[in-house]
Amino acid sequence: MILLQMFISMLKIGAFAFGGGYAIIALLENEFVTKRSWIDHDEFMNVVAIAESTPGPIAINVATYIGYKLKGIFGATVATVGVCTPSFIIMYVVSLFYERFMELSIVMAAFRGVQICVVYLIASAALKMLKKMKKTARNVTVFAVTFGGMTACTLFDFRISSIIFIFTAGVVGLSSFLINKKRKGAKK
């Protein structure tokens, strides 16, 4: 039963996954953390961090993980197929009418509205993460530097992979852990 429920949730998310990976993350968070509590916020954040630093579409990586957590390999398969099926079908149908689809002004008008909603969804996902983040000096600095750095890179057309930011943050986390450990060792 839980599998069927998850499959339907994944289909729904796949069908409305406009605006790239982070928008889908916002939808997944709402469905599986807030609404169903199948995975807690901390674990969800870990998975998103891992998904961002492994190859493949981030949203599919997170979906696969949630499926695995609920029902093992079979659950992972169901989740992955579920989240991919809507875009496969929609893209397939659009391929059949590709030339005509591009001329549909109503689709473009609807999309202009959707874009605004996507900006809102991504921003509120980010603010939620900020709210739940422990406000230590290191966390706040990493957050601010990543935000400023990535925004500046995009605006100045400087192409940089988001992985560089994420990995640097990981290294910062690891080093401060090691330094703390050394200090504690020295005190003893």
Binding site: M45, A49, M129, F143, A144, I166, A169, G170, S176, F177
Partner: peptide
């Protein structure tokens, strides 16, 4: 340690 940068990226 990676998590705060994720919020920044998003």
């Amino acid at each position: 340690g990676m998590r705060p940068s994720l919020g920044g990226l998003i």
